[in-house]
Simulated assay, not measured.
Amino acid sequence: MQTIYRLKASELDHYFLEGLKATFQDKEIEIIVYEVNETDYLLKSDANKIRLLKAIENVNNRTNLVEVSLDNLE
C-alpha cells in the first residue's frame, strides 16, 4: 500500500500522526520527506511550460498584462 500526503510542515500535528497509525496499524512504514517545488511540477507538462515561459516573457516585456485596481475589489 502506498499513500502520499502533501501538506505544509506547519500542518504536522498529533492528528496527522494518529491518522498514520490508524491507516497503517502495526505495519512497518517508510517516511521520506522532501520539499515540493511547484515550478518543477508545473514545468513537467509541455503545455504548462510553454504557458509559464510566455507569461514570464510578458511580465519582463510588460506586454499582455492585466491591471487590477484594489479599489474595484471592495
Score class of each variant (00 low, 15 high):
V33S: 10
K44F: 06
S45K: 05
R62Q: 12
L53Y: 00
T23S: 06
Q2Y: 12
N64C: 00
L12Y: 12
K54R: 12
K44H: 04
V33C: 06
L12T: 08
T3P: 03
A55V: 04
D71A: 09
M1V: 13
K8V: 05
R62G: 04
L17I: 15
I31K: 01
F24T: 02
M1N: 11
E67S: 09
V68N: 00
L20F: 00
I56F: 13
T63S: 10
Q2W: 04
V33G: 05
F24Y: 15
Q2G: 04
N58L: 04
K44D: 08
D13P: 04
T23H: 14
E57M: 09
E28G: 06
T3A: 15
R6H: 09
D46G: 08
M1D: 14
S69C: 07
E67I: 08
S10L: 11
L73A: 07
D46F: 09
S10R: 15
Y34G: 10
K8W: 10
Y41F: 14
Y15K: 15
N48V: 02
K44R: 09
R62F: 02
I32Y: 02
V59I: 15
E35G: 06
T23R: 14
I4H: 00
N64H: 11
K27A: 12
F24N: 04
A55G: 00
N61Y: 07
K54C: 02
L12A: 12
E57L: 13
A55N: 06
T23P: 04
E18H: 11
K44G: 02
I4Y: 03
L20S: 01
A47E: 14
D13Q: 02
R51H: 07
E74V: 14
E74T: 15
S45W: 04
R6V: 13
T39N: 07
N48C: 08
L12C: 12
Y41H: 00
T39M: 06
L53N: 07
H14P: 00
N58T: 01
G19W: 01
A47K: 13
F16I: 15
T39H: 00
L43R: 06
Y5W: 08
R51I: 13
L70N: 09
N64R: 07
I31L: 13
I32S: 07
L17V: 14
N60D: 12
Y15E: 15
N61H: 08
Y34F: 11
L70M: 08
N60W: 04
T23W: 05
K54Q: 13
R62S: 12
I31G: 00
N72Y: 11
K8M: 15
E74K: 13
N64A: 05
N72C: 10
F16M: 07
L65G: 04
E11W: 01
L52P: 02
E28H: 12
V66Q: 01
K44V: 08
A55C: 02
V66D: 02
L52V: 10
K49V: 01
V36Y: 08
N48F: 03
L70V: 10
E35C: 06
L52D: 03
V33A: 00
A9D: 15
N64S: 07
V66M: 06
V68A: 02
V59N: 00
L73F: 05
K49S: 12
E74M: 13
E67G: 05
